[in-house]
Design a binder for these strands. Sequence first.
DNA 1: TAGTGGTCTAGACCACGTG
DNA 2: ACGTGGTCTAGACCACTAT
Lengths: 266, 266
Amino acid sequence: MTSNPASTANPIGPAASGEAVPAAVPAMSPTFSPLYQQIKGLITQSLESGEWKPGEIIPSEVELASRYKVSQGTVRKAIDELAADNLLVRRQGKGTFVATHNEDRAQFRFLRLLADDGVEHPHVSRLLECRRLRASADIARQLDLKPADPVVLIKRLLQFDGETTVLDEIWLPGVVFRGLTLERLQEYKGPLYAMFETEFGTRMIRATEKIRAVAAEPSVADLLHVPAGFPLLSVERVSYTYGDRPVEVRRGWYVTTGYYYQNDLS
Amino acid sequence: MTSNPASTANPIGPAASGEAVPAAVPAMSPTFSPLYQQIKGLITQSLESGEWKPGEIIPSEVELASRYKVSQGTVRKAIDELAADNLLVRRQGKGTFVATHNEDRAQFRFLRLLADDGVEHPHVSRLLECRRLRASADIARQLDLKPADPVVLIKRLLQFDGETTVLDEIWLPGVVFRGLTLERLQEYKGPLYAMFETEFGTRMIRATEKIRAVAAEPSVADLLHVPAGFPLLSVERVSYTYGDRPVEVRRGWYVTTGYYYQNDLS
DNA sequence: TAGTGGTCTAGACCACGTG
DNA sequence: ACGTGGTCTAGACCACTAT
């Protein structure tokens, strides 16, 4: 019976409940934020804090509605957006789950390389090295660190059907990825992002990429088994976790003979 | 007062209205389609048929609700999805409008080339030619035509800050783009897609791109003022209009020194 | 002041997955 | 049979824009 006047402003308390008439407060609007956005923020907090871990189910909509003292519809809209952002996954009849880079076939989401026939081929990773060093000015800036802060550098090759196709250089903040060694990398089965999520509690949410065509430097050409000067796709990626905090810088060189980078404009 | 049992199946008629008790029909579900999806389809039809043209305002939600005999909430959900698909644009307080490639700053949506400093630079087009010819087997297949069907071929250069940066070869179905000539192209001010929409009633909805790094062929290199063998970004695009019908094949070569192709993974 | 989209609620029912 | 997400409705109120 409560008539809930769309919340007055920021505070979560949506309105006194239990009354029969539209509550007082006429609702001001400097810095107005919809209720469902606030709920979205609260759910995100629980995700970030690890209250609900990747792969786990979260409380049902009705349960969350009663917890936050809002209607189910409001929780629904919050979850809708989080699902659109790939933070949650809805499964009808079962429940809503925290998205994960594990089991998921969310591989292609971050490596959009297809064979010329349009088929997504499986790939294997060959680790070259994993060192700890101090961030260059450039890497520090991109990772939002101070210059000379500790970072981890991983180099690896990806092979598709036995063909060496990708060379990756991956920089990670040393503080977050304390204890990351070549051995642990080699032991882990599955995608890198799945490992980061499971072993280091750092989940990649989104990324931006700068793509160029470049001529292969000799050192890169050697590793990829192409002649020096060979045209390669250069992919510079910055990945972000909760709160849009950058937690990975990745420089990739792709051999695009027999494979292409797929992109959809919509 | 009508209790509307979520429609029984396909037909649009949502339910007999005016009764007080949940209508009979227990609702079967082979090929079940939600009401709002059907409304979405009807609105799309009106867009495709030109009942509401690009840039124009469409009827208000309440008006559409009464036209389709559904609640405003159902229309709202349909429009929400169409807005997410970039077919409609909502503007609070004003109304809902048909998306357009004109005035819009929807330029960057289909040409994601930024300068190294991250700034989006304006570009000018220099038309090289516009011929009519018969489709090759390959182009015919991609445009869903029969081989030797008439097609239009446009070649052009794009210059950013005076630098020649992009070479485009564009194939269009001849039947749809009857009357497209070099002169008309030169006369038209504004983006190509805006012209296609205004002059030929064909609106590009989405596109897929295959991206590779290639060595510049001599003929291409000449036009782009780079040496033969220079690494270029090869972008093969297929664009689609309503009903996912392909209506453009575009082969682009980008010089990515000083510029990069921006992509967001999310 | 009027009209439009945007938010919020409450309740009913449907479709899906599991016991 | 039950619980979960998914759909649909109806009505109230808020925020923005134009007149």
